[in-house]
Design a protein around this nucleic acid. Sequence first.
DNA 1: GCGACAG
DNA 2: ATCTTGTCGC
Length: 214
Amino acid sequence: MRNLNDVLAESETTQTELASQVSKSDQHEFEGLSLGGVDVAYCNEMAHACAVIFDIPTQSIVRREKVIVDCEFPYVPGHFYLREAPVILRLLDRFEKTMFLIDGNGVLHPRRMGLASYIGVKLDVPTIGIAKSLLHGKLSKREGNRAFITDNGETIGSAVWLPGKKKPIFVSIGHRVSLDTAIRVAKMSSVHGYPEPLRQAHLCANEMARVGSQ
DNA sequence: GCGACAG
DNA sequence: ATCTTGTCGC
């Protein structure tokens, strides 16, 4: 497996196999589950990742972890995990009893195995995918502030219009969570028209990349 | 063959 | 994502 095409072909097989391991229902094992967000920013070939834990009651960041690693793998639609999973797995390994919002899709994916589901299955932790544009599937009729996204008659996610925003975010199950809960968490953690854990992780990662480039 | 295509 | 100025909208 040397060239990119071979790697992608094998990746598709891996994704299909892992997809069967995704749990699409809410878990009940954890008591006080924390909520976190992860994002990655790039400066040339360096991936700067940041994960934050956001406390909804006090609307504050209670923890922030960072890591920088070399990343040579290119972004290929449908295989985003090959580029970002390595650095994210290293970062989330430091946390316990935490549900993570991840910048990308979960089962809203051609093979039902986007980055969020990959991270969830690999670490066996609850994850939710949040994307800013639609990768796959079709929007059904909008009902209130949401519209389900389907593919082959299967609901794989939902477009969600947050207060004050013209464009929706695309929410999907990552792992160990139901779509209803995923949508609820995305809404209740939003502050500036976007899930705050992700917005904060994004700001932090960008700052890391900016400073790192100087 | 032509377009679509998370970040 | 990243490269970059002005500009549209609330």
